[in-house]
């Protein structure tokens, strides 16, 4: 059970502040980026009217998410926001699936990764809200329906970031802890592969989908 608490860190001193880097998370994030590059290269190589099998998977995913984006936003806005939504989904789903390979851990097991993604989504949502409604219209939203509701609305916006990131982190971290505890109990005999399938593939996919959909909904709340 010591794997949970020993985290490899590198600390740098910069202008009197401590910069802490989590080695495992950075390595796994780089691995995920490499996998995504390989997948995209394979899917777009030798594009043909009769697709090869990686191209089929890519086209299926792109079609599914383009349809979802078009339903939530409208046709022209979908063209702007679809690349962001789709890359968030691919990154999160590859991160969650990385845990099924032994000796590798999910980057989303560290709270910093989901929090960074959530802050990115929130920043883009608010920026596009300011761009579509103007700064006056954007600020006016905070005083709806009454003037004194403004603090509540601000807290609501902050709670969105916290809830979306903690949901992903808690699911992945909880799954990892349960796998670790059960593996210790049964000496890694029969149950852990089943648990890895459930938590890694099933829960990972669903949570990646939920994360993407919520980012999309937050953007659509701002631009409409």
């Amino acid at each position: 059970m010591e794997e949970l608490t020993d985290i490899q860190q590198i600390t740098y001193q910069l202008f009197g502040y401590n910069l802490v880097f989590n080695v495992e998370t950075i390595t796994m994030t780089l691995i995920v980026m490499g996998l995504l590059l390989v997948f995209s290269l394979l899917a777009t190589r030798k594009i043909n009217i009769v697709p090869h099998y990686v191209q089929i998977v890519g086209e299926l995913l792109v079609n599914l998410f383009y349809g979802l984006t078009k339903d939530t936003l409208n046709e022209e806005k979908a063209k702007t926001y679809f690349p962001l939504i789709f890359s968030v989904f691919l990154f999160v789903v590859f991160s969650n699936w990385l845990g099924i390979i032994p000796k590798l851990g999910e980057p989303t097991k560290d709270l910093n990764t989901p929090l960074g993604l959530a802050i990115l989504g929130a920043a883009i949502a608010h920026y596009s809200g300011i761009r579509t409604k103007g700064i006056g219209g954007y600020l006016k939203e905070y005083f709806e329906p009454f003037f004194f509701m403004a603090p509540l609305n601000v807290i609501g916006e902050l709670a969105k970031v916290v809830s979306i990131s903690f949901r992903l982190y808690g699911n992945i971290m909880g799954g990892a802890i349960i796998i670790l505890v059960v593996s210790n109990l049964v000496y890694s005999l029969v149950l852990p592969p089943v648990l890895v399938m459930f938590f890694g593939l099933f829960v990972g996919t669903i949570q990646a989908f939920v994360f993407t959909m919520l980012t999309l909904v937050y953007i659509s709340l701002q631009v409409k």
């Binding site: 809830s163 903690f166 971290m173 669903i206 919520l214």
Partner: peptide, 15 residues
């Protein structure tokens, strides 16, 4: 998707 969203309160208590 709805279940995954309603699960989040349990996840907060796990955290």
């Amino acid at each position: 998707v709805g279940q995954a969203v309603s699960e989040s309160t349990g996840i907060y208590s796990l955290v």
